[in-house]
């Protein structure tokens, strides 16, 4: 069991999420440990079905009724998973805010952006009407929306995709949360707009000292924005550590293979190095390491005994039997 750093803002311990489905029980999240320090940005990266979004939503219990969540989510001395719904509602939005991939579905289409920011301010601050209006304008300005006073009266459909995500962030920031959970916030956006939103999140993180958990499938997004990264595969965190260490000296065979599978500049038209096969089905028990069937470094014990999530380097953990062999090899690039 991982001993959490005492300074952690949020500490997720042994999180499990199981979905009861018609095809049986699906173990979407299977023993995840995470922690975020105040003002830190944590990237939660993985391919589709790895459980990264489910983990994020489980933190605030934003899952459907068929999900069974167990484990602990420590937040300022409390376990969020054990709190009554009413108490949790106070924390959601106030201390921990969330933004999603598709801002259009998270924004109310028939209420102006100004009103939606105002609602958040009414719920979480003691400001009067004039103060809230001033604050709303400040917030739109902060997230980089030009002529914020005019924009307050605008409706979501009048905003472009990037502007909607900015508005969504403004609403999230209204209560000055200590932690922002962002679920693929730039996946639906064009690359130049993605770049703007990522830089915005970084700036807010730095200026407001706000912690950030960024869920994404894009390793580049993590490399550009995050201090630390946790790599997920088949519902488990397989490796975590500082981004510059994990990305340059990965100690889990999956992280290594994922980095190698990406196109690198300078090797034009050379075959890429894909990971063969598919991720395992999560409705069946997995013996040993879930990546073993696709792994190039697989050894006998990988298929029978699950590797421990062990410290492999200062501040870096990996659950891989081949960890030492990876360390002996050269870097990815």
């Amino acid at each position: 069991m991982m001993a959490a750093p005492s300074s952690a803002l949020l500490d997720v311990r042994d999180l499990h999420v199981r979905f009861a489905t018609a095809r049986g029980e699906v173990r979407a999240v299977d023993g995840v440990n995470l922690s975020v320090a105040p003002g830190e940005t944590l990237g939660l990266v993985g391919e589709s079905g790895s459980g990264k979004s489910v983990t994020l939503r489980a933190i605030l219990r934003l899952l459907r009724a068929n999900a069974a969540i167990t484990g602990e989510v420590r937040w300022q001395g409390e376990n969020l998973l054990a709190l009554p719904e009413k108490r949790l509602r106070d924390i959601r939005g106030k201390d921990i805010a969330v933004i999603f991939q598709e801002p259009m579905s998270a924004l109310n289409p028939v209420i102006s952006i100004g009103r939606q920011i105002d609602e958040s301010l009414v719920a979480h601050t003691a400001l009067d009407a004039a103060g809230r209006r001033r604050r709303a304008i400040e917030l739109l300005d902060l997230v980089g929306i030009a002529s914020p006073e005019q924009r307050l009266a605008g409706f979501p459909h009048e905003f472009s995709g990037g502007m909607r995500q900015r508005a969504m962030i403004a609403i999230a920031l209204a209560a000055e949360p200590k932690l922002l959970l962002a679920d693929e916030p730039t996946t639906a956006l064009d690359v130049t707009i993605q770049d703007q939103i990522l830089k915005l999140l970084l700036r807010l993180n730095r200026e407001l000292g706000m912690g950030l958990i960024l869920v994404t499938h894009d390793l580049g997004v993590v490399a550009e924005t995050c201090d630390r990264v946790s790599v997920m595969y088949a519902g488990r965190v397989v490796e975590s550590g500082p981004v510059d260490r994990v990305f340059t000296a990965p100690r889990h065979a999956y992280t290594d293979a994922l980095l190698r599978s990406m196109p690198h500049g300078g090797a034009a038209r050379a075959p890429l190095r894909p990971i063969p096969g598919q991720p395992p089905r999560l409705d069946r028990a997995i013996a040993g390491c879930p990546f073993a069937p696709r792994c190039a470094l697989v050894e006998d014990r990988c298929t029978v005994e699950a590797p421990p999530f062990a410290v492999v380097a200062p501040d870096q953990r990996a659950a891989c039997w081949a960890s030492d062999r990876l360390a002996a090899r050269e870097g990815v690039a």
Binding site: S160, K199, E224
Partner: peptide
């Protein structure tokens, strides 16, 4: 604007301003 996988090539500057 393309996010680089190399964490050492970070930049805080926006590649381009404005919307499409």
């Amino acid at each position: 604007a393309v996010p680089q996988v190399d964490p050492h090539q970070r930049s805080a500057r926006e590649a381009v301003r404005g919307e499409l």
